[in-house]
Design a protein around this nucleic acid. Structure first.
Lengths: 114, 114
DNA sequence: TAAGCATATAACGATTAACTTATATAATAA
DNA sequence: TTATTATATAAGTTAATCGTTATATGCTTA
């Protein structure tokens, strides 16, 4: 047991959710920046609906939050989630993904969502 | 990034593996004791082949090791795995599962594998 | 209001995952 | 050697997952 224990069933659900390269990368990216869906679409090699479905799963689990900014929807890490300490200690082990943002900028695909 | 960083692809594979209640519980159990397959069979509500398949996946990923002790095969955490720091920080958040062992003993199902 | 961009939802197909039962293998004990 | 116990493998079924295309919704701008 641990000071910030999480039920094993709940942990399994979260781990399954993050056991997907796309969603895990998204979450790590959100650790340093907020992103709009269109940026995720530009970064990952899947269709817009696929991205939409991935972020929906993260949102349904309460791990991310969305805020609409005009026509864009910005996703951010939900650091108020009860599960955030668990998630954070997890993504802490992952390499920073800011290079993806730089790639976007180089390619002129960075959209100013704010 | 972090001192014990793990590739994001590899992390996703491990998280998917542990995104299963049975395997996640097994791994947490192995954090405090070694177990033989027959004990897992007695503890979890699935068939012996199902247990065998779960431990095989954990073994194939290098997270656990097996040692034969006569007719029994004992599984233990592979603390030498490159991924062990990642896995350990993860299971550190989970509640201790020793009560499962106590349940076995109460029911007289605890097999002395050593 | 109509057009255009951003995002979500629906519906479907392909693949993967997790179980089951039946059977094989390996070690032990009679 | 034969029976028994422990474990693994094979094969098949069902359900879940992840992607796709087509379409709907919502906001913005002309």
């Amino acid at each position: 047991m641990n000071s910030s224990a999480i039920e094993i069933e709940k942990a399994a659900v979260i781990l399954k959710l993050l056991g997907d390269k796309t969603r895990l990368t998204m979450l790590k990216m959100l650790d340093t920046h907020d992103y709009c869906v269109c940026e995720f679409v530009a970064i990952f090699k899947v269709s817009q609906p696929a991205i939409s479905q991935h972020v929906r799963k993260l949102k349904d689990a309460g791990l991310v939050r969305e805020t609409r900014k005009g026509q864009w929807i910005i996703y951010s890490l939900n650091r108020e989630s009860d599960d955030f300490p668990f998630v954070q200690s997890l993504i802490h082990h992952l390499p920073n993904q800011d290079f993806k943002l730089e790639e976007l900028e180089v390619q002129g695909l960075r959209i100013s969502c704010d």
